[in-house]
C-alpha cells in the first residue's frame, strides 16, 4: 500500500515535469517560427498537452480532485483548438500574409476571399 502511494506521488511529479517541459516548448516555438499560422500550431499543441499533463499530475497528487480535473481536461480539449481556429481564421481574413517559405495557398482561390480583396 505504501509502495503504491510512493509510486502515485512520483508519477504525479513526473507528469508535472513533462507538462512544464511542453509548456516551455510552446513559447519557444512562438519565438522561433516565422509567421502567425506556424506560431499558432506550436502554441496550440504544446499548451494543450502541457496543461493536460500538468493537471493529470496534480490529480495524481490530490486524488480527491480527480473529478474536477477530468472536467478541466475535457474543457481544454474542446475549447483550445476552437480558439486557435478563431485566431487563425480572423488572421487570414485580416490578410495577414503567409511567410516566404510557404509553398501553396489554396484559400486564395476561394471566392469569398476574392470578393473581400
Amino acid at each position: 500500500m505504501i509502495i503504491l502511494n510512493v509510486i502515485r506521488v512520483y508519477a504525479g511529479y513526473f507528469f508535472l515535469i513533462i507538462g512544464s517541459l511542453f509548456l516551455f516548448l510552446g513559447p519557444l516555438g512562438i519565438l522561433r517560427f516565422p509567421d502567425v499560422y506556424n506560431r499558432l500550431q506550436a502554441g496550440t499543441k504544446s499548451t494543450t498537452l502541457g496543461a493536460i499533463s500538468a493537471l493529470f499530475g496534480i490529480g495524481l497528487l490530490e486524488p480527491g480532485w480527480l473529478g474536477k480535473i477530468v472536467i478541466l481536461i475535457l474543457f481544454i480539449l474542446l475549447t483550445n483548438p476552437v480558439s486557435s481556429h478563431a485566431i487563425g481564421r480572423s488572421a487570414y481574413r485580416s490578410k495577414v500574409p503567409l511567410c516566404g517559405k510557404s509553398v501553396v495557398d489554396k484559400c486564395e482561390e476561394e471566392h469569398i476571399y476574392k470578393e473581400a480583396k
Binding site: L78, T79, V82, H85, A86, R89, R93, I112, A116
Partner: peptide
C-alpha cells in the same frame, strides 16, 4: 463584414 465560423458557433 463576415459570418462567424461554423466551428466557433458549434463550440
Amino acid at each position: 463584414t463576415c459570418e462567424p465560423s461554423l466551428i466557433v458557433k458549434r463550440g
